[in-house]
Amino acid sequence: MSSRQKSFFATPSEVFSWIEESTSLLSLSAVLRHNPGQALEEWDGSKNSLLTSLFIYLAQSKTDLRTVPANNIMPGKLGWIRVVPPRLDQSRLSETVIQSRSDWWDNAIRSTCENRATHHLYAKITKVISPILKSPVHAKNIITGRTSSYQDMGYTDGAVELFNSGHGWVQEGTSNVIFSPRIFSE
């Protein structure tokens, strides 16, 4: 029972291209979740629908979405990989996150269950994006001034271009840490 996660900074266009390449190369299906509680939908191939979604789920095969409750999605049970797409506004680029979770609680049998195939799919998917990622990502706590370098986080050339044009790199929900492709000066 475990989870895997890959975080990186990339432009929305780069993430769209990566999803498009992954679904084609690996014969995957993409499912979109736009809002909590709203019905899931199969990806129609459009860039806008993909990048305006709250989450993107990548699956080995098509799923009858009528059987998946939108308010209780269990990616591990379904064998789905969850992608949190980047958000880009006037001054910030949020990270992209790829997540795999192999376990879930099954209320019917009152036990934790596991689907290890989820991690195999995660490995295939991350193999497609990894060649274009550079690392490490450097972080600085803007309150304490402490800095760190993260070898397991990556970034793309497009994210560097945005950074150089003044877009800060951020993690959603974290307001006291900034990220950079370069080491912070003291």
Rank of each mutant, 00 (worst) to 15 (best):
V31D: 03
H34P: 06
P36R: 10
P36D: 15
Q38N: 07
A39S: 14
L40P: 11
E41T: 14
E42V: 06
W43P: 01
S46V: 11
N48Y: 04
L50C: 08
T52P: 01
L54Y: 11
F55G: 03
I56L: 13
Y57C: 15
L58C: 12
A59G: 06
S61C: 06
K62Q: 14
D64L: 12
L65F: 08
R66K: 13
T67A: 10
T67P: 00
V68M: 10
P69D: 11
N71W: 00
N71L: 02
I73F: 03
P75E: 15
G76E: 01
L78E: 06
L78K: 02
G79T: 07
R82H: 03
R82N: 08
V83P: 04
V83G: 09
V84M: 07
L88F: 04
Q90M: 08
S91I: 02
S94Q: 10
E95T: 09
T96I: 13
T96N: 10
S100E: 12
W104D: 11
A108S: 14
R110V: 15
S111M: 14
T112Y: 09
T112F: 10
C113M: 15
C113F: 02
E114H: 10
E114K: 12
E114G: 10
E114Q: 14
N115Y: 06
R116E: 15
T118D: 04
H119S: 15
Y122T: 09
A123L: 07
A123S: 13
T126L: 06
S130M: 10
P131R: 10
P131Q: 06
L133C: 04
L133T: 05
K134R: 13
K134E: 14
K134I: 09
S135V: 06
P136N: 03
V137H: 00
H138M: 13
A139R: 01
I142L: 13
I143A: 04
S149K: 06
S149P: 00
D152Q: 05
